[in-house]
């Protein structure tokens, strides 16, 4: 029959076209040198300032030239101080992040998946969210002391809310049409959660965790301001009190690098889970 023959012709034609497509997209693109353009401005400013201080046009006492900042960083690394402080900060963020993220995921899942639990939990949590997290500091110090517990608690609170909101919102916005597919195949509640809800919320969950991690780094600074003897935040306070702007800037640079590395690790670690996403990213 002609219909059958033509339909076969179509499918093989479509097949050929579809098979050819990835070869094109995966073709290695030439390195785009314009990416380096982004480095131009900061390096130019740094060199100008370095030159101005070297020529005696500026003192560079409160705004140290790049060479002094690098030297300070190098010195801190040499004595091992930098690693102690970095490790301390990292440890606090990590513990706080894990506690806050786990709590956020669990409560977010509870609140997203059932209307009853949402009506029970959400108003209270939204009210707590309206409190600026730093406002908890005095209370945490009274309750948990000035050592690690209060710091970790503050970071956990900071991480909790974006994760909670993100997870609950993601579950609420799962496509009803896909859930119906699960109903048609008679999935139980647990199966539905595992086979449809969980994969469907993963992309948004990753974003929620990333913003949680970002806030974790924000709150670790606040936590280390409230009386720490170690940590990059301590280096900041110490630099201020001892009048060492180069140390402050060195700590800021360390924070920037640390935050970026942690975020990249989180993205790289979760990438295999969201590979299937049909996003514009890969086509740009």
């Amino acid at each position: 029959m002609t219909g059958q023959a033509t339909s076969n012709a179509w499918s093989s034609h479509e097949g050929a076209a579809a098979l050819a497509a990835p070869a094109l997209t995966e073709k290695r693109r030439a390195f785009d040198w314009r990416i380096l353009l982004g480095f131009f401005l900061p390096i130019a400013v740094a060199l100008l300032w370095e030159g101005a201080v070297a020529l005696g046009l500026a003192q560079g006492r409160l705004v140290p030239p790049p060479s002094r900042i690098i030297a300070t960083l190098w010195g801190l690394a040499q004595t091992g101080e930098l690693w102690t402080h970095t490790w301390m900060t990292l440890w606090r963020v990590l513990v706080g992040f894990v506690i806050g993220a786990v709590a956020g995921i669990v409560l977010g899942a509870l609140s997203g998946s059932s209307k009853t639990t949402r009506q029970l939990l959400d108003p209270t949590l939204q009210a707590l969210r309206a409190i600026p997290s730093i406002a908890w500091v005095p209370l945490f110090i009274l309750w948990l002391g000035i050592f690690e517990a209060s710091k970790v608690a503050l970071i956990a609170v900071g991480v909790f809310f974006p994760v909670y909101l993100g997870i609950a919102g993601a579950i609420l916005s799962v496509d009803r049409k896909l859930v119906e597919v699960g109903h048609v195949f008679r999935l139980s509640r647990v199966q539905l959660a595992r086979r449809i809800l969980l994969p469907a919320v993963l992309p948004e969950a990753v974003i929620a965790l990333r913003s949680g991690l970002g806030l974790g780094f924000m709150f670790v600074v606040a936590a280390e301001f409230m009386g720490a003897s170690e940590g990059l935040g301590y280096l900041l306070v110490d630099g201020q009190q001892m009048g060492k702007p180069d140390q402050i800037l060195a700590a800021i640079i360390a924070f920037a690098l640390l935050g970026k590395i942690a975020d990249s690790l989180l993205v790289a670690g979760t990438k295999p889970l969201v590979r299937w996403q049909d996003t514009v990213r890969e086509r740009l």
């Binding site: 049409k177 597919v181 195949f185 086979r195 994969p199 469907a200 299937w276 049909d278």
Partner: peptide, 30 residues
């Protein structure tokens, strides 16, 4: 309610985007 002997094809494909084509087809073969 949904019955194992009743299958449905919707107006839209409604494939699960995180499953490969063959895993999508195998979805109901538990």
């Amino acid at each position: 309610g949904p019955h194992p002997a009743v299958g449905i094809v919707f107006q839209e494909p409604r494939l699960l985007p995180w499953l490969s084509v063959s895993d999508n087809i195998a979805f109901g073969l538990d």
